[in-house]
Amino acid sequence: MSSRLLLVADDPLSASALRRALRAASAFEVLDGYVDGAASCAATMIAHAPHVVVVDQMRSRDDTIARIAEVHSVLPATKIVLLQDHMEPAWLTAAATAGADAAIAKTFRLDGIGALVREVAAGNVFHAFQAAQAMPRPTAGSLLSELTDRELEILRRVAAGAPNSRIAAQLWITEQTVKFHLSNVYRKLGVSNRTEASHFAYVHGLLDTPTGVAA
């Protein structure tokens, strides 16, 4: 049975376009209509019990955070994905604290957003939000443990010299999804590009021999 997905938004036109894109991803039963993010949504969430909730960026940041927190409160097992224009760290931390599982930049092509939401729903993406100043310097092992199985698999293939197009074909995902996972890998490992990520993988035993990979 496909996962039920419900949209939370305050713009009917944006909600309609997103609903079409998510239905095209074919992995979800996208429920009709959308939840108006300007008002409480607890009763609707309980009635429909969606497996995934996509919260579209709203005009009011307070409303956006309130809806994320409300969904997380009444349906703690439901995956919550935020679609957002601006990816400022402080704002994303606030969304994660409220209960968001992941944030996707709205600069992604609309027809690729469904694939990214599918990765979040499948548990292939997670974010750990911690106060860096309160934590000891992370070890290589702890950094690698932050990676999901899919992210680790993509890191190994990148380090072996595979381009995004080949990785996408091998894993039956889109190139945009590969880029999405790589951006998470770079952030979690504290590296900036493919060369640094490949070097990290080799130094820490993920490959037998080093490979030269262009940034």
Rank of each mutant, 00 (worst) to 15 (best):
I80K: 03
T93E: 12
T139I: 05
L22E: 10
A100E: 10
A21L: 03
L82I: 08
T93V: 08
F108S: 03
F126N: 12
S40M: 04
E146P: 00
E70F: 08
H127Q: 11
E146T: 07
V120W: 03
L31M: 14
S145I: 00
M135T: 12
R59G: 12
A69H: 03
A21M: 00
A102R: 03
L75I: 14
V117L: 06
A115N: 11
T107K: 15
L18A: 04
L143E: 00
Q84K: 01
A100G: 10
D56S: 10
A27W: 10
G37Q: 12
A134T: 05
P138V: 01
A21G: 04
V71N: 01
E29V: 07
A121I: 09
H51T: 00
L144R: 06
A131S: 07
V71I: 14
F108Y: 15
T78P: 02
D63V: 00
G141M: 00
A103I: 08
L147K: 07
F28L: 01
Q133R: 14
P138C: 05
A90W: 09
H51M: 02
R67Y: 04
A38P: 01
E119P: 00
T78H: 03
P76W: 01
R20Q: 13
S60W: 13
R67K: 14
G112H: 14
R23L: 02
Y34G: 02
R61P: 04
T148K: 10
M135R: 09
G123P: 10
M45Y: 09
L92S: 01
A140Q: 13
T44E: 13
H127R: 13
L22C: 11
